[in-house]
Nucleic acid binder design. Structure first.
Lengths: 325, 325
DNA sequence: CCAGGGCCTGACAACGTTGTCAGATCCTCG
DNA sequence: CGAGGATCTGACAACGTTGTCAGGCCCTGG
């Protein structure tokens, strides 16, 4: 900048004014400055600028579990759109479900003085963010609630969606429902399971805990577990799969066996139409979830001082039949 | 930092030394500093730090077309892993295939003084990056070559893969091959098309340009175009679809009609096993592409001064049969 | 006993930018 | 004709940090 100023024969302050489109600069001087900028290939240092002018790095941090996962990629895409509307860049970090890594990454994002944080939490305790939030870095949590921290939260209606879905199973006469899930350590899974229990309880059907199977991480395992449940005496007449990775394995196994058991899944698929065995799913709008969170964050960044808010994004029952009937 | 120094009764420089684990600090003083840091909730300002110490913002920029697209999400995931190994954060921007936007975003990333750039180019001319590269911000292009700029490039073997794929069609006796593509304005599409032409030419089968259909952006259009081609006199006996969005529509339409035409696709699918109509695809390792590019970038950041390199990631023919036979 | 080196600390300037303020010029209006 | 405002410009300090350097202490070895 000093070089540009020297070249244009003006002060650095005038250069600063020109590159920031500040008012009150003679057109002729501005021309000279612009020429010098072009000749010297000058580019304003955004870091120095936001250091000096206090806040506004025009960057927000997004912390998710894993960028390559389509769910999080969709979130990232929707957040990027909203950020772009606010001329803001996106710093993305993946916690890989590791609370220690999450904490370190969040600290790092704060050290980079992001204007705000969007977090899909992995850990249980986010009190370490309290000081940052107090110091003016707003944080919005999405998909899962924050632990030990009062903050804005945008969640899916996991419980309500699961309840509505399982109710259709119940109404179709099913009482023995196999429930397939990833891990109860994840909030969304617990909520979906709770919703399923509520729907069964409402029908007076106590849930059979031997039909609830945990720790299913991939379609292969899901297929195996479905097989095991079907092979035991008094097998389930329907399955509720708590995410689409599991649904995939389940549908394959049911198809392979020509089973008539019903299947209900949480999470929709892109390629649902192509599956050999259509089934009803509890769908939701991932982009709406992410957009709501991002928009809330930008309201906070703009200075909205109101009480922390909790938004619930509705789910949608997409009926593709219950093939087991 | 001055507050911490005051609280601990030391100079700011000593605080700096402690928070950077510099040697030659009395353990007792370090203790006092650490205590003050904890009490005051001090967090080092990474911006100021990298401003003062010259380079190394420990951030790289990734410019892609669209984050929500699984191809780019996979790239982002692999890049994030490599970046994480180098304790580097990832600033991600989406050009949405708009060259003007791409240029603006790249300039913005440079203004943020990223240590390096990873670019899936949208535009044709990247000479505006020359000054940045000269000034020490290395750039690596991936999936598509840079325009008007000598720079490292990591590409898929689009042409070779298409040639190998179409050769299998030719060997199976097909001479009339319908070719379905998105847009010839995209480099990868042109290469794949060229590979297909080469394979057909090698068999002495001149390509019939009426069978090459352009501008197919979604599965629905793909399905319609397949129908049109099949309905015309002397229809193709095989199709080569240049990306998986198109393959999806094509396979649906072929399935719907019970057609015996063969189908070959570029791009593999996650759910390929579940498709009702298996077909051979030209697959590739997106993660390998991205990792190679990221690793090359970090070598440049570390100071590797060698000539710009061009890497070619091989494709892999995954034979799932040619159902048309 | 002193030279020389390792250990430890702090004052100061600087990174590239912009907020603040003072000053200069010009115009307008009473 | 002068006061007051609008327009324009630059000197200076400051943002939060770290590189440089000077200086102090203590030890070791000749």
């Amino acid at each position: 900048m000093v070089d540009v100023a020297a070249r244009a024969g003006v002060s650095v302050k005038t250069v600063s004014r020109v590159v920031n489109n500040a008012p009150y600069v003679q057109p002729e001087l501005a021309q000279r400055v612009l020429a010098a900028v072009a000749e010297l290939g000058f580019r304003r240092n955004h870091l120095a600028s936001s250091l000096r002018s206090g806040q506004a790095t025009a960057t927000i941090g997004l912390l998710i579990e894993e960028i390559a996962n389509p769910f999080y990629a969709t979130i990232a895409g929707a957040v990027a759109e909203v950020a772009s509307d606010h001329d803001t860049m996106l710093l993305i970090a993946s916690s890989e479900e590791d609370p220690a890594r999450e904490q370190q990454l969040l600290r790092d994002l704060c050290a980079r003085r992001v204007d705000g944080l969007l977090v899909v939490p992995a850990g249980e305790d986010h009190s370490f963010l309290q000081s940052e939030v107090d110091l003016g870095t707003p944080a919005v949590f999405l998909d899962r609630p924050a632990g030990e921290l009062r903050a804005d939260t945008v969640l899916l209606d996991n419980r309500g969606g699961a309840r509505a879905g399982v109710r259709t199973l119940v109404e179709a006469g099913h009482r023995r429902v196999g429930i397939l899930l990833d891990s109860t350590s994840v909030y969304t899974m617990r909520e979906r399971l709770a919703g399923a229990r509520e729907a069964l309880a409402a029908a007076g059907a106590a849930i059979d805990d031997r039909l609830v199977r945990d720790g299913i991480r991939d379609p292969g395992t899901a297929a195996r577990v479905v097989g095991e449940l079907l092979d035991q005496p008094d097998p389930p007449t329907a399955f509720f799969s708590l995410n689409n990775r599991i649904s995939l394995g389940a549908v394959e196994e049911l198809h392979r066996r020509g089973s008539t058991a019903a299947l209900l899944g949480f999470d929709d698929f892109d390629l649902a139409r192509l599956l050999p065995y259509p089934f009803t799913v509890v769908a939701y709008d991932t982009r709406a979830l992410a957009r709501a969170a991002a928009e809330l964050l930008f309201r906070r960044i703009a200075g909205d001082p109101s009480e922390p808010r909790s938004l619930l994004i509705p789910t949608d029952l997409v009926e593709r039949g219950l093939p087991g009937r």
